[in-house]
Design a protein around this nucleic acid. Structure first.
Length: 108
DNA sequence: GTTTTGACAGTAT
DNA sequence: AATACTGCCAAAA
């Protein structure tokens, strides 16, 4: 199996995203903090965009701190993410938002 | 090597 | 409460 060169940060991001249980979500900031860079939330999005497919990550479980999907609502990515989450049992309270207090993953 | 961009978050106004 | 501004980090150009 070929090892792909990747920053330690990206590896941690991937590792933690894979840990998010089905039916729960995490925020970009949360993942960034777990990866050791509390202010790298934007970079988290970058890593996911670059590695989500190749690493088969549950990228849909990562949302922003407001509890909403970070894509523009009219994009295909937005609807795809929302659909995947709903398929996992995540229910949206408002049109675009869910209850972070209830669905956010608490790392063990 | 420097500049620009991006699936964000926190603070200030 | 809602919007604007700033900070931060990693890829791509």
């Amino acid at each position: 199996m070929t090892k792909i060169k990747m920053s330690p940060f990206a590896r941690k991001v991937i590792a933690y995203v894979k840990r998010i249980p089905r039916g729960q979500v995490a925020t970009y900031g949360q993942i960034a903090r777990l990866a050791g860079k509390p202010h790298a939330s934007r970079a988290v999005g970058w890593v996911l965009h670059a590695c989500a497919k190749s690493h088969q990550l549950p990228w849909q479980r990562v949302i922003n701190s407001k509890g909403t999907i970070s894509f523009h609502p009219l994009t295909a990515e937005y609807s795809a993410q929302k659909r995947l989450l709903q398929k996992e049992g995540v229910e949206f309270q408002s049109l675009h938002g869910l209850n972070l207090n209830y669905y956010q993953w608490k790392k063990s």
